[in-house]
Design a protein around this nucleic acid. Structure first.
Lengths: 185, 185
DNA sequence: GTCTATACAGTGATAGAC
DNA sequence: GTCTATCACTGTATAGAC
């Protein structure tokens, strides 16, 4: 049986881009149909729950990406390699400051309440996983958790500043600073 | 002549709260009339430009607050007193992590484009003013600017994390860390 | 599965009485 | 200055043809 031309997962990147750029409320179905190239009929066929289900699917995809590309390597690999690899992955994911964090966008508005479980888990997992890796890398126990919070928070703040000034290199600079701070264990 | 019961400036805090909580697109006139206690007639009397002018007035109010309470003290006072005072003011302003930064919220979505001048200036002024104060306080020239970026970005990131986890103390912890980093000049 | 047509609640905004 | 009534429009969502 021939593979369908459009699968549900194929439209998720376009959906993510719309939610990232316009936020949940700003992401109108008009923008979504335009970005995905699908009519409302097709969209509601894939996502019977409408916009709410679309955003949930995007969050699940993001969680899966970070689980595979960031969290698992941090847990399993040698932290001396895994921690720099995390910064590389993050730099690539956020397009070196040219793209913001959808979970961060959702976190700041009342959209957080609609996806509270997912939003909280995203940051909590990131911080906890990174803290463990930093500890294995030689940082002291309470300080490692604090440093992990500083790094994850610093990444979010760097994205805010980079987009506010429309200067992606502000994010790159932030990453460099945080990277060296993680090294000095 | 008796002072009017409702002045334009009196409704700005309520407006700010709505935009902060729901974002620009999520801040409907229904929410705004509810939060301000004013009908649409009164709102459009004060803000003929509608929502766009309301948000602009809020941004102007915020800019004024920071100019008076943060930027000017940083420029004029002894940095040894002004820098800790900045952290105190920021802690109070953001309700110790219980309130997010409206300019940060706007920066992350396409609302930034509508208020690009104001958004960019807010962070640029903050970073530049803080960098000068840090230099006067003993930090080296290029490092002071870098540290100022780290502090302002760290504050924004701390607000994101605190709201994502619904744990304001995450912001307080961030402030403490940044505070001590500014001291070690 | 994808489209067009449509329902209908909610949007920002305006007009006019008081 | 504040209200109510109302505007034109866009919002999400649904129904049904193909």
């Amino acid at each position: 049986m021939p593979r369908q031309i459009a699968e549900r997962d194929d439209v998720i990147p376009a959906l993510a881009e719309v939610f990232r750029t316009h936020g949940y409320d700003g992401a109108s179905l008009a923008l979504i149909t335009q970005a995905t190239g699908l009519g409302k009929g097709s969209l509601y066929h894939f996502f019977p729950g409408g916009k709410e289900e679309m955003a949930a699917a995007v969050l699940a995809q993001i969680e899966g990406w970070f689980a595979t590309k960031v969290f698992e390597p941090l847990r399993e690999s040698d932290p001396t390699r895994a921690i720099p690899a995390m910064f590389d992955a993050v730099d690539a994911y956020f397009h070196s400051g040219g793209r913001v964090c959808l979970v961060g966008v959702f976190a700041l508005s009342d959209t957080r309440d609609r996806y509270f479980t997912e939003v909280r888990r995203y940051f909590a997992t990131w911080i906890e996983t990174l803290a463990s890796a930093l500890e294995k890398h030689g940082h002291e126990h309470p300080a490692a958790r604090d440093l992990a919070e500083e790094i994850v928070g610093g990444i979010q703040g760097g994205l805010v500043l980079a987009r506010a000034a429309d200067q992606p290199q502000l994010f790159t600079r932030t990453l460099t600073r945080l990277r060296s701070r993680a090294e000095s264990g």
